[in-house]
Design a protein around this nucleic acid. Sequence first.
DNA 1: TGAAATTTTCGAATTTTATTCTAAATAATC
DNA 2: GATTATTTAGAATAAAATTCGAAAATTTCA
Lengths: 158, 158
Amino acid sequence: MNGTEIVLDKTDLSILRLMQENARMTNADLARELEMAPSAVLERVKKLEQKQVIVKYTTRISPVALGQTLLAFIAMKSSEGMGSNNTAKELAKIPEVQEVHHIAGEDCYMVKVRTADSASLMDLMRNKFSKIQSITSTRTTIVLETVKEEQQLVIPEK
Amino acid sequence: MNGTEIVLDKTDLSILRLMQENARMTNADLARELEMAPSAVLERVKKLEQKQVIVKYTTRISPVALGQTLLAFIAMKSSEGMGSNNTAKELAKIPEVQEVHHIAGEDCYMVKVRTADSASLMDLMRNKFSKIQSITSTRTTIVLETVKEEQQLVIPEK
DNA sequence: TGAAATTTTCGAATTTTATTCTAAATAATC
DNA sequence: GATTATTTAGAATAAAATTCGAAAATTTCA
C-alpha cells in the first residue's frame, strides 16, 4: 500500500468536471447542480484542494491579445547523466517555457515555448538556453497555427 | 485599421496577472489588491471577458489523481491540401487530444494526447486516428516525466 | 484649445454567496 | 451489530457580488 492513493467518487468527479469547465462557478451553483447542500459541496472542494487533486485555478488568457504570437516546440539533447534532471529544472525556471518534458527516444527533452515573436525567441535562446551548459543541441519547430490548445482531462463518469 | 485591436492598460494587465495565478480570487480581493472600488474592477473583468481577452476560467486537475498517466506528442503527416485544415479539425474533436498545432517543417501537425495508459493510446490510434483518412503517417513520442506543464503567459508590466 | 461626448470610477443599497458550526445521517470498521 | 469515522444538512452570520445613479476622468474633434 502507498498511503497516497486517492479515492474519488461520482460526486467528486462531477465537481471536477464542472470546475474544469468553469473555475469561477460559485459554490452555490455547484450545490444546485449536484442537488446538495452548499456546505457539503464546499467541504468536498476543500478536500480536493488539500489532496492536490485540484492543482490550481487559472485563467486562460488569449495570447494574441497580449501580442504573444510565437509558439515553438524545441527538442533538446542534454549531456547530463540519466539520473539527474538539472537541465530540465533550469529550463523550467524560464517563464517563457511553458512545458518541459523528459521524453523517450533520441532527444532528451521536449520544450514548449511562447514568446512575442521570432526575435524574442532568438533572444531567449541566446540569453537563456545558451547559459545552460548541459544542452548540447536543439531542434526548433515553429507553430504556424494552433487549432486546439487546452489541458482539459477526460473525466470518467464513475 | 482593424477594429479588432485590443488596448490593455496597466490595470487590465494587473487583473490578468492576478487572475492567471488564481482564477477563484474574489472580486473584492482583486479590488483591494488594485486599490479600486469592487464595482470598477468588476466592470473591467466583464469587459475582458467580452473582448475574449479572458478565454476561460479553468481548474487544473492532477492527471495522476485521475489515473491519466500517459502523455504523448504525435507528429503527423497529412495528405490534405495546404489550404484546408480538416484533418486538424477532426483531431480537435477527440477529447483526449489536448493540442493540435499546424507546424512548419517536414511534418504537418503536432498533436498532444493524454490517456490513461499505453493501451488506451493504442485504442485511440486504432479507433480514432485511423478513421481520419487524410493522416498518412504518425511518429509518436512518449513522455517519461513532466517537469513543467502550464500555459501561464508572461504578462508585461505596461 | 475647450466644449461635448464617452468612458471609467465610485459609493451606497440589495441580493446572493461563502463560511462556520452543531446535529443528524450515512458509511466504514472491527 | 455496535462503535467509530465521515459526510451531509440546515441555520446563522459574515463577506462578496451585483446593480445603478452620479461624479470624475478621459477622449474626441470642431
